[in-house]
């Protein structure tokens, strides 16, 4: 299939969607959390306003940093939007949909994670080093769970192509096999850890010693901080969108017609909104676990993935 104009439009739409939906999802999650805690909370639009405010401020850099520090937020956002453009979020027929698979998307996102880790080490401070060290540990534990979950889902379909993995749920009714459900649970735990949500990391913490992600990005300010927030929130909605589409594929556009795209856009926004609310509710009811209990949680996710692979093979 040659790259088509429709595919290009769809990819551009997905790219813009993650950039806009990311901050909105953050706002929604904070709002839900506030209401459940009995507070009024800021508007859902607040993260967008924050981004606008940040983009008018001065850029800063720590005294001993190099170009790596300045490049990290750029690469983070670039990797997130590239991954989003080629994933089945709004439609199954985005650009390059047949030539980019789940593993490729995962490694593109990894580029963003690694650049953030290096940007943190470039500051030469204890906090950023601590954050990077912890984030690297969590990342190293997340990757096995993610890859095994992808393998388990791919086994039933015979390919790791994401559009096929999502599409198989639309066109057939073999969606809810035990293998797929186990793999999705494992995938979901991995997403929570990867995007730094509770119970792995507390995104709202203000104490440096308990931070993972926030400690890494302490030194960023102004437009750079805006990029970090944008990139992180884009990754969040991208992963939640993938999860939602893998679990409940209905509503995703099959082609690239105008009407189909609008329908797909609505569908993915609603699905991600629901998942975000669910995550938020879960976060209110749970506490952050100790740093060295995180590997146990992720080992559990990994085992679910292995179980899923075994059941996929056994039930074939």
């Amino acid at each position: 299939m040659t790259p088509s104009i429709g595919g290009g439009v769809a990819s551009a739409l997905q790219l813009l969607w993650v950039l806009l939906a990311g901050p909105l999802a953050l706002g929604l999650m904070r709002k839900v959390r506030s209401r459940l805690e009995g507070r009024e909370g800021a508007s859902v639009l607040q993260p967008l306003r924050d981004l606008r405010k940040l983009s008018t401020k001065q850029r800063t850099r720590p005294t001993d940093s190099t170009w790596v520090f300045a490049a990290a937020p750029v690469v983070l956002v670039a990797s997130a939007v590239v991954a989003a453009a080629f994933s089945p979020l709004v439609t199954l027929s985005a650009l390059l949909a047949t030539r980019v698979d789940f593993v490729a998307i995962l490694f593109v996102l990894l580029l963003g994670s690694v650049s953030l880790l290096l940007g943190a080490l470039d500051t030469g401070t204890a906090f950023a080093g601590m954050g990077a060290s912890r984030a690297a540990m969590v990342g190293a534990m997340v990757e096995p769970a993610l890859l095994v979950a992808i393998l388990a889902m791919s086994l039933g379909v015979g390919t790791s192509n994401l559009s096929r993995l999502v599409g198989v749920g639309v066109t057939t009714s073999t969606l809810a096999g035990p293998a797929r459900i186990l793999a999705l649970v494992s995938f979901f735990i991995a997403i929570l850890a990867e995007t730094g949500r509770l119970p792995v990391d507390n995104p709202a913490t203000h104490l440096e010693l308990t931070m993972i992600h926030e400690a890494m990005v302490l030194e960023y300010a102004g437009p750079d901080l805006a990029l970090v927030t944008l990139g992180e929130s884009a990754r969040l909605v991208l992963l939640l969108g993938l999860f939602a589409n893998l679990a409940l594929p209905w509503g995703i556009a099959l082609g690239t017609g105008a009407l189909a795209l609008v329908g797909g856009l609505l569908a993915v926004s609603i699905k991600v909104g629901l998942v975000a609310v669910a995550v938020s509710v879960f976060e209110v009811t749970t506490a952050k676990i100790r740093l060295f209990r995180i590997p146990e949680l992720l080992a559990g996710a990994f085992l679910l993935g292995v179980l899923s692979v075994i059941s996929a093979v056994a039930l074939r």
């Binding site: 290096l118 080490l121 990077a132 690297a136 769970a145 890859l147």
Partner: peptide
Amino acid sequence: TLAVAAVALTGGLTIIAFVKAYGITFLGR
């Protein structure tokens, strides 16, 4: 299956090793 697990675990550990190698040796003070 165990091989995939090994590949995945190795991938994560490799990132730690090399972020450390580059970050600690070449970045910071």
